[in-house]
Design a protein around this nucleic acid. Sequence first.
DNA 1: CTCAAATCTTGACAATGAAAACATTTAAAG
DNA 2: CTTTAAATGTTTTCATTGTCAAGATTTGAG
Lengths: 194, 194
Amino acid sequence: MTVKPYHHGDLREQLLIAGELALAELPIAKVSLREIARRAGVSHAAPKHHFTSMADLLGEIAARGFDKFIVALGNAAEQSKRQTGEDRLLAMGRAYLRFADQNPAVYGLMFGQVSKMSMTPSLTKSSYEAWTQLESAVAQITGPTQAPIGATYVWSSVHGLSMLKAARRLPPHVSLHAVEEDNLRIMVAGLREL
Amino acid sequence: MTVKPYHHGDLREQLLIAGELALAELPIAKVSLREIARRAGVSHAAPKHHFTSMADLLGEIAARGFDKFIVALGNAAEQSKRQTGEDRLLAMGRAYLRFADQNPAVYGLMFGQVSKMSMTPSLTKSSYEAWTQLESAVAQITGPTQAPIGATYVWSSVHGLSMLKAARRLPPHVSLHAVEEDNLRIMVAGLREL
DNA sequence: CTCAAATCTTGACAATGAAAACATTTAAAG
DNA sequence: CTTTAAATGTTTTCATTGTCAAGATTTGAG
């Protein structure tokens, strides 16, 4: 019944970690399955026994990204639990933007085109949990009936800003830091009008 | 002084068109430089004389995407020029969402990671023009001083929804069509609170 | 201990982006 | 018109990639 049954250690876990490090360190074009295997110290075909494909591996990394994402937003919510629902949502929004800034590659994977990565069961599960978490925070402001539409709005608004920043599509005369607080503030205001 | 100086026709233009068609027809993973050359009826190395790299070609396609995008939003603005600024912004938002829906691959390119595509001068120029267009529409509601922050907010909000839809990250219990109008409505409400 | 399953390696394959060497067409200069 | 250099295309080559198949090794169940 041992869970780590073979000589190398837990290669599956090592590959996931190596993949996350590679995504953090290298330009995305240089992140290959073989490069990840290299970093894990195994042959280029070894991953096949743990992931059916490159897309499968990336899907798992994205799922783990959502798990960390949930923790980051959960911490922000926890630390502001004495405050109003709106302030808590602001705190979560800041945590969201910080996560995207600090984990650009994984974040890009989490919300990227489905083609490059498999929709693994754990990815579906983790992304759904992230959604539920946000919907709960919004429900405390709007009530449960309006929560789905409110959560969609909040997520769209914060996610859009993250993406525009990451893709460098905001014009130079827009101050990135100032724009974040303004955006979050307007977002909350919009939610009030729901 | 002829502008089309060689025997094949205007290969540069043909490659761009072939690339756009390939992006529209094929899964993104199958869109390669060689596939595009194949579709244009030339050897796989021919593109080198018109585009320094695959990323360069994709950058140009993204730039042309922005040009079409500008036209689409401009048409929406034109058709609603008798209406209020807010209604015009709503019309532009709908056009935005429609463009993203109808051109998923090019749209993904336009706002995708910079790594896969070069920031060519025409891409910088076209994306900046798109921004200016939106900022003008927002300025008619908020006044010029608040326009940059308002435009950032509006773009974030609509862009985020587009991305979440394209990446299929909205949970199944959220009605895609209903959510669009709601989102745009809240967006305008938020702008009022600016 | 035996032996089959799980795990890992080696070797192969087709496809890719890029670059170099070469051929052809174009058009400018005399 | 002829010469000639630049622009445009092709062929060939190269390193790299994801995937697969075949073989080797380790593991653990019986």
